[in-house]
Structure formats: structure tokens, C-alpha cells
Simulated scan of single mutants.
Amino acid sequence: MKIGIIGATGKSGSLLAAEALKQGHDVTGIVRFVNRVRDSRIHVLESDLFELNRNTLKSFDVVINAFRAPSGKEEEHLTSVEHLIAVFEDLPDVRFMMVGGAGSLYVDLQKKIPLYTTPDFPKDFLPTAANMAKAFSLLEKSTINWTYMSPAIEFDYEGKRTGRYTLGKDNVITNTRGESYISYADYALAMIDEVKNQAFIRQRFTAVSERG
């Protein structure tokens, strides 16, 4: 498939691009700075996220949003999704997938208590988590073809790609050691597998893996 990755040079985006290439997809990095794309196999679309429109995205089968708002501008997690929803309303044949946050996952079976509202949630992460939760709520109410993937609570950039993961939906889940853990590499694998599997259309899902 033709996959565009917004933020393809970031931590999540770079591993998503590498995994998509590994699985044989045609990958375009949607980035603000062309010179940061180092892999010659990746096509490049130079654009600010807020300048993306129907014409710039209509050629893709899937667009994955791996944008991360800078510190102090966490509200951009919400405003960026507002903008992208408006764009994708005119692109019914293009699937929108998003690297989400763990904070909106529920900690109770009744789905009343999101993780980010619990007393022990780190205060430093609260602005990001709250805005990403609001963005997820916007997606749920939208009519676009979306999929949102929340990582585990411990999202480990240094962790190994084990090639295995366990899937869940709206609740925090744990691995065989009782840990809510996933490496960035296994997260990327689960996301790119979902491009093909299409098991979570207009749904959120999550995944955990074992420590490599």
C-alpha cells in the first residue's frame, strides 16, 4: 500500500517507516524538514501538518499521524486532529491511523475511569494525555475512516523488536509478567500489521509485548 507518515523522522514515525518498508509498503515521509529523512527508500512530502489538504493526501491508501506536539504546545495534539478530521472528511477512501496515547485507556471494566484521571498519573504528562484524550474523543464522533492505537503505559524506545505482541481494545492490558509494556519497535509492528489486517476500522486498539 501507499502509506504516508506524518512525523516520519520522530521516534514513533521513524520506526513505523522502517517497519512499513520491511513489510513491502511504499512509504512517504510527511515532514517539515526534508534533510532529516536519511533513508533513500522513503519518498518525501515536505509540509507542515497544518498545511496538509485533500490534494496533498489523496494519493495515499493510508496516512499515519505520528505527530508529537512540542513541550508547551500540547494543545496542538487536539488542534492537529481537528484539522486532519476536516481534511479526511473529503477523503473517504483514505484511511487515517493515529499514534495515540495510553492516558485515555480505561483502568476499569465499566470504561468510566481513563488512566490519565487516576491519582498516580504523572503530572508532567497530564497536558499531553488530556489533549490526546480529547483528540481521541473527536475521532470517535467523526465520520472519517479512522483507527487509533494506544501504546502500553510503559512505552520503551530502547526496547527490542520481539516480533510478538498481544492486542486489546479500550482498557489497559498487561503481558505475562503483569506489566503494561511495549517497545516502540513492537508497537510499530502492530500498527503496520493493522494496515493490512484492518481489524480495527473506526476503533481504538492497544498492544503489549514482552521485554526483549
Rank of each mutant, 00 (worst) to 15 (best):
G4W: 03
I5M: 10
T9A: 03
T9K: 01
G10S: 04
K11V: 13
S12Q: 13
G13A: 08
G13R: 05
G13F: 07
A17E: 12
A18S: 15
A20V: 13
Q23S: 13
Q23Y: 08
G24F: 04
D26Q: 06
D26N: 13
T28W: 04
I30D: 06
V31Q: 09
F33V: 15
V37Y: 07
R38N: 13
H43T: 15
H43G: 10
H43R: 12
V44A: 14
V44R: 15
L45G: 11
S47K: 15
D48V: 00
D48I: 01
D48Y: 01
E51I: 11
L52V: 02
R54D: 11
N55I: 11
L57T: 05
L57W: 03
K58F: 11
S59V: 02
F60P: 00
F60L: 05
D61Y: 00
V62H: 04
I64H: 06
N65D: 10
A66V: 07
F67I: 03
A69M: 10
P70F: 08
E75V: 13
E76R: 11
E76D: 12
H77D: 09
S80K: 00
V81M: 08
H83V: 03
L84K: 01
I85W: 09
A86C: 14
A86S: 15
V87C: 14
F88P: 10
P92A: 02
V94S: 02
F96N: 00
F96H: 02
M97W: 04
M97A: 12
V99Y: 12
A102Y: 00
L105Y: 01
Y106C: 00
V107S: 06
Q110W: 08
K111R: 11
I113V: 10
I113S: 06
L115S: 00
T117Y: 04
D120T: 06
D120N: 05
F121G: 07
F121V: 06
D124C: 14
D124A: 15
L126Q: 11
P127G: 00
T128P: 04
T128C: 10
N131A: 05
K134E: 13
K134Y: 07
A135E: 09
F136G: 10
S137H: 14
L138V: 14
L139W: 03
E140K: 11
S142D: 09
N145W: 09
P151Y: 08
A152V: 04
A152Q: 03
F155L: 05
F155Y: 12
Y157M: 15
E158I: 15
K160F: 14
T162C: 07
G163W: 11
T166R: 08
G168S: 09
G168H: 09
K169P: 08
K169L: 12
K169F: 15
D170K: 14
I173V: 04
I173H: 02
T174S: 06
Y181P: 02
I182A: 08
Y184Q: 06
D186W: 06
D186L: 07
Y187C: 01
I192C: 05
E194A: 01
N197A: 15
N197L: 15
Q198I: 04
A199E: 14
I201Y: 01
R202A: 06
R202V: 06
Q203D: 04
R204H: 03
F205S: 11
T206V: 14
T206I: 10
T206R: 05
V208W: 13
S209D: 11
E210S: 14
G212I: 09
